[in-house]
Amino acid sequence: MSKLGVTLAGVPFKNPVLVASGTFGFGHEFSQFYDLSRLGGIMVKGLTPSRREGNRPPRIAETPLGMLNSVGLQNPGVDVFLEQELPYLRGFDTNIIANITGATPEEYAEMTEKLSDAKLDMIEINVSCPNVKQGGALFGASAEGISSVVSACRAKTSLPLIVKLSPNVTDIAEMARAAEAAGADCISLINTILGMRIDPVTRRPILGNNMGGLSGPAIKPVAVRMVYQVAQAVKLPIIGMGGIMDANDAMEFFLAGASAIAVGTANLVDPMAAVNLLEELRDILDSTGESICDIIGGVILNEAAHGVNKL
């Protein structure tokens, strides 16, 4: 395997740089800027059983080193994806990962069954979208919710299942353990952190949906911490994400225990972000003489600061 190659749940990735669901559409827009085959994988825009129009605008608000979004899973539905978008994506030499959200465990299961026969590499179960009333983060907020959705999907497919966890919980490790116990093959985290902005003049929230999901560099330390905690709690491979803008950001996630990373918000700022990061990462590995697998989970923890504790 090359220096950059990784294997997640038995699926080989040519490199550990993926693009996060919801920031990359179905790839068309970015193929104007680079060959999508350069990516390790593409996590496509979140799919629902049928077409969704999404939330009322405004759907975006800038924050200090971040942004809130409340798109609300606008997508053409799983059938249109399979008929019109997947054939296009399969034209690239990269792993394609479908991302699904349902209102009930049954809806998740039905979508999983449909996608199971398609030429997909993995399915990412989204139990963490903060912008829809039904399903999504509702399931991701408790171990029982995660368990019910993951077991329902597990029964319908032999494709590797990724569970995308919500950071809006007290104990992320508990959520990861629930996913593992219910048959998940991989964990991705973090989805966005629920947030809100209010215009002091109009006294109204800026987002049409009032609240939205915070992403970007502002959430990176939270994401790194959660990846580290999940890596300690489960044996499953982890796809880390949350505010990754460059290769040094990515290194933090690998060191914390992620076997792959996904570029999200950075795609919105710079369409070349993911491949620029990949080249930087290659340079880092060249300079240290390591392969990516040497880095994963390699954080060197400080000993507890006894002096402070004594106080």
């Binding site: 559409g25 605008p57 759907r59 975006i60 798109v71």
Partner: peptide, 16 residues
């Protein structure tokens, strides 16, 4: 005009 993200049609935020 609408509050915009990527500008290229991927993020779907500038909805009208």
């Amino acid at each position: 005009d609408e509050r915009m993200g990527c500008g290229i049609g991927a993020c779907l935020v500038c909805a009208v």
